[in-house]
Design a protein around this nucleic acid. Sequence first.
DNA 1: TCCCTCGCTTGATAAATATCAAGAGGTACT
DNA 2: AGTACCTCTTGATATTTATCAAGCGAGGGA
Lengths: 232, 232
Amino acid sequence: MRSADLPEVRSIHLFQTMEEATFDSIVKAAYFQTFPDHVVLIEEGDTADFLYVVVEGCVELFASSNGRETTMAMVSPIGTFILAAALKDAVYLMSARTSQRSRILMIPSEDIRAAFEKDTAFAAAIIRELANCYRAVVKEHKSLKLRTGVERLANRLLRYHNDQGCNGSLLLPHDKRTLASLLGMAPENLSRAFNTLKPYGVTVDGPRVYLGDLLALENLAKPNSLIDDRSM
Amino acid sequence: MRSADLPEVRSIHLFQTMEEATFDSIVKAAYFQTFPDHVVLIEEGDTADFLYVVVEGCVELFASSNGRETTMAMVSPIGTFILAAALKDAVYLMSARTSQRSRILMIPSEDIRAAFEKDTAFAAAIIRELANCYRAVVKEHKSLKLRTGVERLANRLLRYHNDQGCNGSLLLPHDKRTLASLLGMAPENLSRAFNTLKPYGVTVDGPRVYLGDLLALENLAKPNSLIDDRSM
DNA sequence: TCCCTCGCTTGATAAATATCAAGAGGTACT
DNA sequence: AGTACCTCTTGATATTTATCAAGCGAGGGA
């Protein structure tokens, strides 16, 4: 890795608190790579040779079975993926592909495993990161089991709206077909779900969505901090 | 805690490799408690004061939102629950209640947090356990998004059949209504799903299920190691 | 023994969601 | 400009799943 990249890597949460020696040992074998969009980075079932960190761009995690495919998560900077598999030295449960041109940090997973055995601060950082990942999936799972498609969309819109400054409009961060898959519905049904939300003040113009009646939308969505809050 | 209980606790995976001093510090404040069935142990939204370990019996993790409720997981011995919340000092994302009379080890979460900061072996054990929990939820999520209800049931039956010795029959480990909720379907639909599986050799007599044509059932279920294998 | 409750099942119906087919509108390439 | 995609939308229809209502049968208590 170029020494110019070091400060950027060091500033990533996972690596901030670790000892200098551990950082060196990890950085030695790690490297940055920039990928064009729609490049498959890993396929589920492969052995976990690397831990990945998305530094720029966006990566889609997806899974397949029996001819079907679904989007599991979208990873934006700075986000890690495949941490659990790398730690366990197990196979990946999800595939990953870039959804934009992306700059990605790749760290051999054996170095990660060696590092946390020696460095308590790094182990603690990994535990925090893993716990966050775990809770994120639990929330997704709750959302899917406890809500209808329209409700999942409504809450997702409220989330993007929050993330983007609560100014009455938002940009969908992904393709509509990707969003549909992420929300666990067919693309056609996402279109229809948007129509269902029209009476609640939701209007769509391409990737831009206007929320004209926040109260009505929230009343339908019934957001729940134990599902929708990213920070806890 | 009674000193007679110590060897049993020490033998739990999470506590096997830790240093003696760390073990002492954790055990000091921990205690066993036996609960009757259908006792609510924790409610989602509460702050995570304890880490729980199911030593005997069975605990149901469930979640609610907007008047709906769903079973998230069943925890059998020896299994932990609410580890991520305890580590993060955050609120529980799931509620828990006993589904049988259960003996449960409760460890104050601040002691857990203090312990892994000092003891690398314990931190490593926590990381392993967390990674396993994470991967278990990912698998559940994949199952729900990639399979129909009948397919989820078929695969679940094959799993129980494996767990119980592959002798052509199995006992459902939980109520049918609980199983239905776990599989993400209404109890009525579980009944109908069993009927759908009749042509594939599945017959039901109360909690006992006979698999008369394993090949046919597997052909329908199309089990996938990246969803159904517990051990990886 | 009777009767009640409870877990489960079944049938009828409604709602949610997926699928298939077609078309609109945009973009990129030739 | 024309053409070939591509994404998204819409309509028609089928499938899946949930809901509501009723009933069956085992077990428990009076």
